[in-house]
Structures are given as C-alpha cells and as structure tokens.
Computed example of a mutant assay.
Amino acid sequence: MALNSLGLDAKKTKEIAGDLNDLLANFQNYYQNLRGIHWNIRGKNFFDLHVKFEELYTDANLKVDLIAERVLTLGETPLHTFDDYIKKAKVPVGKNISKDSDAVHLIVNSLAELLKLERQVLDKAGDANDEGTSSMISDFITEQEKTLWMMNAWLGESI
C-alpha cells in the first residue's frame, strides 16, 4: 500500500477526493439555488426567508471553499467549472422559484441529496482513517440535519 504525504493510503484518498469533488459540484448547485430563491422570494414571508436564505448561501459558500481545500489537501484538483457541476448534479435545480413553500421544499430536497453524498464520503473517509475529511463531513452532517429539521418544521412536516 502506497502512502501519501499525509500518511494515508494514496489510492483511497484519490477516491475520497473524487467523491469530495462530486459533493463540491452539488454544493455549488445548492449554493446557486439559494442565491436564486434569495433574490426571487415573494409574499408575506419575504423578510424572514430573504434573510434566512442569505444565511444559508453564505454558509454554503464557506463549505464550498472547505471542500475544495480538502480536495487540494488530498493531492487532487477541485472541480471549478459550471460544466463539471452540471454533469455531477444530483441536487435538484430550482428555476424561478418565488413561492415560499416551493423554496423551502427545494432546500429540503437539496439537503437530502447532499446528506446522501456526505454519508458516502464519511464511510470512505472512516475506512481510510482520514480524520480530516471525516471531521469536516461530520460537522456538515450535524448542521444540515438541524437545518433539514427546521425547514420541515417550517413546512409543518416531519422528517
């Protein structure tokens, strides 16, 4: 087994970096969705949701950077084109969403997809003893599960 400079299995970290790139692409789509609903939200919940969506896209933007930097730390190149993002997209694309419940459903569906991808990365990172990736992804999952619960509560739905 060949080890990289981090002391991790080079083959396994290459695979983890690939999965992180998939996550990166989907986070970029999620981020763009959040920008769109932030800009286009209408109705009686405008003031509250406009602020909440800004909070979420600011957080997503930070996570995009953390994911890209982790890919680099693992010795690979982060995806950085819209073409790459579109090819890897599993997060639903929201276009021209202005109704509050549609916007929140988009967030719920997006987070559900991100959580699936993150759990795959977490499993592989654990198997490779990649604590750096595991810790980052574990933190993401904890935050997103709470956000998912809150969005479902706003919708009046259970998880």
Rank of each mutant, 00 (worst) to 15 (best):
D65A: 08
D65Y: 09
D65N: 14
D65K: 07
L66I: 05
L66Q: 12
L66P: 03
I67G: 00
I67K: 02
I67P: 06
A68I: 11
A68Q: 10
A68C: 13
A68P: 14
E69C: 01
E69V: 01
E69W: 00
E69P: 02
R70S: 02
R70P: 03
R70Q: 10
V71F: 00
L72H: 00
L72E: 06
T73A: 10
T73G: 02
L74T: 04
L74W: 03
L74R: 03
L74H: 01
L74Q: 02
G75W: 06
G75I: 01
E76W: 00
E76T: 01
E76Y: 00
T77C: 01
P78W: 06
P78M: 09
P78I: 08
P78S: 10
L79R: 14
L79W: 09
L79S: 11
H80F: 15
H80N: 09
T81H: 11
T81S: 15
F82E: 05
F82M: 14
F82R: 04
D83H: 10
D83C: 08
D84C: 05
D84L: 09
Y85T: 14
I86S: 01
I86L: 11
I86V: 14
K87S: 11
A89N: 10
A89T: 10
A89E: 13
A89W: 07
A89K: 11
K90T: 15
V91K: 01
V91C: 01
V91F: 03
P92Q: 11
P92G: 12
V93R: 08
V93N: 04
G94Q: 07
G94N: 04
G94E: 09
K95Q: 14
K95H: 10
K95E: 15
K95L: 15
N96L: 11
I97Q: 09
I97T: 07
I97R: 06
S98A: 12
S98K: 11
S98Y: 13
S98I: 03
K99Q: 14
K99G: 08
K99L: 06
D100I: 01
D100L: 01
D100N: 03
D100C: 03
S101F: 04
S101R: 12
S101D: 14
D102A: 13
D102S: 13
D102Y: 06
A103P: 08
A103F: 07
A103C: 12
A103S: 11
V104E: 00
V104I: 15
V104Y: 03
V104H: 01
V104F: 05
H105K: 12
H105D: 13
H105F: 12
L106W: 02
I107Y: 02
I107M: 04
V108M: 07
V108H: 05
N109H: 11
N109I: 09
N109D: 15
S110L: 01
L111A: 00
L114Q: 05
L114I: 14
L115D: 06
L115S: 02
L115Q: 09
K116S: 12
K116V: 15
L117N: 02
L117D: 04
L117F: 09
E118K: 04
E118L: 08
E118G: 03
R119A: 09
R119T: 13
Q120W: 03
Q120L: 11
Q120V: 09
Q120E: 15
V121P: 08
V121G: 04
L122Q: 04
D123I: 05
K124I: 10
K124F: 09
A125N: 05
A125K: 03
A125R: 02
G126L: 12
D127A: 15
D127T: 11
D127I: 06
